[in-house]
Structures are given as C-alpha cells and as structure tokens.
Design a protein around this nucleic acid. Structure first.
Lengths: 147, 147
DNA sequence: ATTATTACTTTCAATATGGAACCAAAAATA
DNA sequence: TATTTTTGGTTCCATATTGAAAGTAATAAT
C-alpha cells in the first residue's frame, strides 16, 4: 500500500492521503473523543472494523500523523498518540464540524445539536488551539503517570 | 446509493458525505481551477474517469453543494455551479491546502511550491473570502453573457 | 492455573473504483 | 444539407477497497 499522488495540487495531495471515510475520523477520535487504544477505536460510536483500523493506523503512522507508545508497566496496551503533524489537522477538523453543523442536519436526522457551534464560529483558531492544548495536557498526564 | 450516517458526530457526518478521493477535489476544481463542465473535469490534472465523475456530480447535486445550469444559446453544454453550501466548504479546502503545503512535501515530490502559503496563513478567513468573491464574480460574468 | 483482554491477522463476501468502449444529442464544419 | 466532431453521459468488466466474522498470540487479571 504505497502512496500515489495524482498531481502537484496541495489539496488533491492531502486527499490522496486523507481522502477516505476513516483517516480523519480516527484523528478526530484521538483529538476530541479521547481515544487512545485499539480497543478504544473499536468501541467508538463509529465502530471501525479491526482489519481496516489496523490498516489505517499503519498509514497514519507512516505519514507521521501519529506514533505508538507503551506505558512502562504494561507491555500489552499500545497507545496511539497524535504528533504535531496530526495536531496540525485540528483546523481542518474544526472547519468540517462547522460546515457539517450548518449544512448536514437535513440529511442526518441524528446529528447532535451544535452547542459548541457559536463558540467555534466566533474564533475558530482559538477553538482549535484550545482543543490542541487540552489534548496535550491529557497526553502529559498519561505519560507522567505510569498506568 | 443512498446516504447512511455512522453516528451523531458532525465531523463523521461530513466525512460520510465528503470522505473520499473525489468529492472535495471536484469542489476545489470548481472553486479554484475554474472547471465548470463535464469535459473540464475530465481534462483536469486529476483526470477523473467519467463514470465516477458522473456518480460524484450527482451526489454533490443531491446534497446541495452544486447545481446544474445551461446557457441560453447552447443546449448541449451543462454548467456545474457551486451553491452557497458548496462555497461554504472554502475554509475546509484552504485548511487542507495549508496543512498539505506544510506536511506533505516529503511524500509528494511533485507538490508545487506554496507561493500563496504565507498569504493564506496570514489571514485564512480573508483568503477564503477572496476565493469565494472571485468565484462569484466569474459566475456573474458567465451568467450575464450568453456564451 | 485458568480465564479474559488486547492487539492484531486472516478469510471471504460485498461494494466501490477505474479504464475502455459505447452511445445519443447537439453543434460545428464542409 | 450531409458529415464530422464535441459533449455528456452510460455500460461493461476487471481490480481494489471495505467490512463482518472468526481466529490467534501474547499479556494481564483472577
């Protein structure tokens, strides 16, 4: 599964890597939903099947969006962590959320109500930055403790 | 090909519709590359094959991202136009471009140089709005003339 | 010592993608 | 007017991707 690029356009290039139903969903699950382990992803609302999850996690690692780690006292559980490159996707994710809240409600009847929409819209960059900060704090907490 | 949604998350919902290799590329071709006709898309750098193009254009129309029109003096050529909903994807496209310029160069050796990157980054909202304005001006020009 | 959990891989069916050829209507050209 | 070309598709078929289910090996908990 080596990557092929269609042309020199940055947008097309991004979509050559991220353009599917799972890549950005996994990033979002890590960034927003606090998912960190294979099991977490499997048990998410979106319920990825494990073969696909495995494939996508490998690709995300390969392009430097996430890296794997382990806790010192546990040899079994693998932690998946966003890199700075992965965290740099936060603005994309935020823009998708804004667009979706404002345009997808008529199609997805179970779309949750957008409580954070006005906050998000009032300062998208600040909202994105707050998400990143929250992620990093959680990350620090997990790495500092041992379990 | 009716739409199914995985859960109530807005990001996942957006990707249920847009999450593939073509949907956002077609939007970008219209918004930035001035593509308007079936032929235009076929002859683009990305060279979509016509069966897929046909399928995706129908889906984009169905979710209200584009609409079809014709010029008064030409019964053959079909024009594909972005709606306000489609134009509202501009910030997503801009964020993808920024991320890509800054993170994909090591993977896509033919990625073009990001001359507009610093301009884009300095004020993303303004950059997006300028793209939308330019599109609308072109649109007005085409609709006003007859050919 | 036994059971459960975690992180996968394998298998196989269903669906999506993609290239190529084909086609009908309209437009351009001779 | 007759012929050719262009445009906007559709159809066919091969290949690739997705996805559900079951299986497995190592570790951890009981």
């Amino acid at each position: 599964m080596e990557q092929k690029f269609r042309c020199d356009c940055p947008i097309t290039t991004a979509l050559d890597v991220l353009g599917d139903k799972w890549m950005l969903v996994i990033v979002k699950q890590m960034l927003i939903d606090g998912k960190r382990t294979f099991k977490d992803f499997r048990e998410s609302d979106e319920a990825v099947s494990s073969n696909i999850l495995s494939t996508k996690l490998k690709l995300l690692e390969k392009v430097g969006i996430l890296f794997k780690s382990k806790l010192p006292n546990n040899k079994k559980t693998v932690l998946y962590n966003l890199t700075e490159r992965g965290l740099a996707l936060t603005p994309v994710v935020v823009e998708l959320a804004v667009w979706s809240y404002e345009n997808m409600r008529e199609f997805n009847s179970i779309l949750r109500k957008g409580d954070e929409l006005s906050l998000m819209k009032s300062d998208k960059a600040a909202f994105a930055e707050a998400l990143v900060q929250k992620y990093k704090e959680e990350q620090a907490k997990i790495l500092s403790q041992g379990s």
